[in-house]
Design a protein around this nucleic acid. Structure first.
Lengths: 272, 272
DNA sequence: CCGGCCTGCTTGTCAGACCAGCAGTCCAGC
DNA sequence: GCTGGACTGCTGGTCTGACAAGCAGGCCGG
């Protein structure tokens, strides 16, 4: 108990710690440049080697970023932290820990279900002039836009099935083949917008990381096409149902529909 | 999409990347020692400076740990990643002001609720000889043991003086239990065991990081006593109720009770 | 006034050196 | 023979000084 942190304090760790604190305490603010390496040498009274190792640590944590090859390090905008180190941590954890895909999917399910429930409650219960409600509504609108994009791409594809539902905006002048990458991108945008509608930053960040981790996992496991016309149509229909439930403020429905959607998707994708 | 590697590839980044892949691909397994710095210099044909910066990056990501001051770097056990870099990422994000505490609490709620629901379902639905069920039962037993520990500490404490709880500054010398740290430790053990009972590794790892991140935040925000006798008794009662629901296989009850418990706790703790 | 050069910064990288610790070895003295 | 201490060779941690490449700004000549 008595010998806690005495274990190791190399000079580079101390330097890194001081810089970290300066950044996290706001003495260095997002966008600010860090002093040059040689300047830091003078400030801390250590050699450039030591300073560089400290900076490499900060850089790895995402607390310092650099624009160009010879550009100075700068304090990043906070949201860069989520796409960088947080995502990497999760991916490493899953890869190293041999976490099965099913666990990850269940985790994603829980996160996203909580998000849509919160979003639905916000829309269903909050007063109309509540700024949180307005933000949520804006994100839901984004989700709807993404859904429309998916629909449009489905419609542009040569019709294989007769069930072409009622689609108001059709643009037959678009390229012939549906761009699978773009479709997936719209799918991502849909889910991201939904989670954003919850207004919970933490939920959103972790969800993004988990999602990323899952797709990395999938990419490693199989070079999936999993893009049959019927599947895509089913995805779009499920999206529509989820969105409707959220817009109606029905948290319970939204949650259940989303669980079905996510679990069904991954059940269809992973066959082995 | 694919604008990844074009950005920058200093030598230390390349070395770090190769080592990363070796670790994540399992060429180097948990517990293995990495080659010495000088050896890596020879292998990669770079100077020790470069190797050291790469190693510092790996170390920061938690993909390499060292025991003693002059000990060689080794590949960590996977679960060390959750308490290390993942936790740090979350803490940094919060400190940079991007994520309010309430969001994190909601996140924790969602994670833990999903866990107890899964655990309850496993106990309630799985056949008796299902190994998953047996694992879950073992973890639930752990949870009960932790709860008993909390209870015992509460019982060992002399009945507190009349709880005039409105003045924390007056009598801080009267702890509600003999050993507050041990009580908290038992509390942690309870929640960890519950989540472990879900059998979902991913859930457990992320939950640990989030929980850690929250308590760091709290420790920074207030030197919490938040330990009135009545509060602690209430916590124990809530634990009992949650545990009972899980043991009874009642997922819905377990989820709701847990949400109340977590949210209530943090509502009582954060006053501002 | 404008363009090119030059100087001075930055980061990236290298080579070599030294220190403090730890482990294994090996020899001397008991 | 056995034990103790010195010795040797490793490890990581740190420093020094040097050079290349890239960028910015100033300065000088046309």
């Amino acid at each position: 108990m008595s010998f806690r942190a005495v274990t190791r304090n190399p000079a580079y760790e101390q330097v890194a710690q001081q810089l970290r604190e300066a950044i996290l305490d706001g003495q260095l603010r997002p966008g600010d440049e860090l002093p040059s390496e040689r300047e830091l040498c003078a400030q801390f009274g250590v050699s450039r080697t030591t300073v560089r190792e400290a900076l490499r640590a900060l850089q790895t944590q995402g607390l310092a970023v650099q624009a160009g090859p010879t550009a100075p390090l700068r304090v990043p905008q906070p949201d860069a932290l989520s796409t960088g180190p947080l995502r990497d941590s999760l991916v490493h954890l899953m890869k190293l820990g041999r976490v099965p895909l099913s666990d990850l999917v269940e985790l994603r399910c829980a996160l996203e279900a909580a998000a849509v429930a919160t979003a639905a409650n916000t829309l269903g219960l909050a007063p109309l002039n509540d700024p949180a409600r307005q933000r949520a509504a804006a994100h839901v609108a984004d989700a709807r836009a993404a859904l429309d994009t998916m629909r449009r791409q489905l419609a542009d594809t040569p019709p294989a099935a007769a069930g072409s539902d009622a689609d108001p905006a059709l643009a037959p002048a678009a390229p012939a083949v549906a761009d699978v990458a773009a479709f997936e991108q719209a799918d991502v945008a849909f889910h991201v917008a939904l989670v954003a509608a919850s207004g919970n930053e933490a939920l959103q960040l972790v969800m993004l990381a988990v999602r990323d981790s899952i797709s990395t996992h999938l990419r490693d496991a199989l070079t999936g096409d999993h893009a049959s016309q019927r599947t895509l149509n089913r995805l779009a229909r499920q999206h529509e149902a989820i969105l409707a439930a959220v817009e109606a403020g029905d948290a319970r429905d939204a949650e259940l529909l989303l669980r079905d959607h996510v679990i069904g998707f991954y059940r269809g994708t992973t066959r082995r």
